[in-house]
């Protein structure tokens, strides 16, 4: 289980109020898509969930326990850039979490332990479709492949929560559709609660179980410092998506939009079709 509860969270940087009074309960195994205009505090929100930034007021709990004040292995993360280590190969990147866990002093694995870790890493690498590229360095991979690698690297820790900050924002639509399929599968198959920041409404609605929006109610230039963004929309996707279960409306697809054909205003007419 991994339920995240935010209780009246405020965040200020110096004089500037960024987020105001965010109260939110994120159910275990939910896939929350977070949208909002640029600069409204989405990354700040994610950093608070990571433990990288502390709320100015209010508290955050994970499974009823106050969040540890620094990033840790229970919360994985993928950023838009710089999520993988340029000096390690694909295999080295995925192995790193295992190495940190097993070898506190030398930070290296040897012999049988190393072989076992490599086996596990290889399975994950295959899972995200990077088999064959194990010995390449990130600079030799495309943007989409780097993000797949970042996912595999985070998932080897089996985190309770996966935080994604515009992870697919820099990818072209074709690659993005492909990685959406992967993302959905991973979410179905792993014990994960996901919070994903995105600018792409379509992405939010195709992947999420719940879409929330941050917005500044007062956004005149002179008010911008004194008033932060608040939680302005909170939409549960219907028909509900449930982790690990096929959608009742389309057993072989995750995307309920196409077979239903009901919502003419849904901006997602194609792509994303599971094989």
């Amino acid at each position: 289980m991994s339920e995240i509860v935010l209780d009246k969270v405020w965040k200020e940087y110096g004089d500037q109020i960024v987020l105001e009074k965010i109260s939110l309960t994120i159910a275990s195994r939910a896939f929350v898509a977070l949208v909002g205009p640029s600069g409204c505090g989405k990354t700040t929100f994610l950093k608070m969930l990571l433990g990288e930034e502390a709320p100015t007021q209010g508290g955050i709990t994970l499974d009823g326990v106050p969040l540890i004040a620094e990033p840790g292995p229970d919360r994985g993360v993928v950023f838009q850039r710089y999520s993988v280590f340029p000096h390690l190969t694909v295999l080295g990147n995925v192995l790193l979490g295992k190495v940190f866990k097993r070898s506190p002093i030398a930070a290296r694995l040897f012999g049988a332990e190393r072989r076992a870790a490599i086996d596990e890493a290889m399975t994950l690498i295959a899972e995200v479709g990077l088999n064959g590229s194990e010995t390449k360095y990130p600079a030799q991979l495309s943007g989409g492949m780097q993000q797949r690698l970042a996912l595999a690297q985070a998932l080897i820790m089996k985190p309770k929560v996966l935080l994604l900050d515009e992870p697919f924002g820099a990818l072209d639509p074709g690659i993005r559709a492909e990685i959406h399929v992967l993302m959905k599968r991973l979410w179905h198959e792993t014990e994960l609660t996901v919070v994903m920041v995105t600018h792409d409404m379509r992405e939010a609605f195709t992947l999420g179980t719940r879409v929330i929006a941050f917005e500044r109610p007062r956004d005149r230039p002179e008010e911008r410092e004194r008033y932060g963004a608040v939680l302005s929309r909170d939409i549960d996707i219907w028909p509900p998506r449930i982790a690990g279960e096929n959608s009742i409306f389309a057993p072989d697809r995750d995307d309920p939009v196409i077979p239903l054909g009901l919502r003419q205003d849904d901006p997602a007419p194609q792509g994303d079709i599971l094989p």
């Binding site: 620094e70 950023f79 940190f100």
Partner: peptide
């Protein structure tokens, strides 16, 4: 990049391990 260090922390690295690897 700060992101790299954060990433290493979420992989469970201690200060020493992050320094080394």
């Amino acid at each position: 990049p700060r992101e790299q260090i954060i990433k290493a922390e979420t992989l469970g690295g201690s200060s020493w391990q992050i320094a080394l690897r």
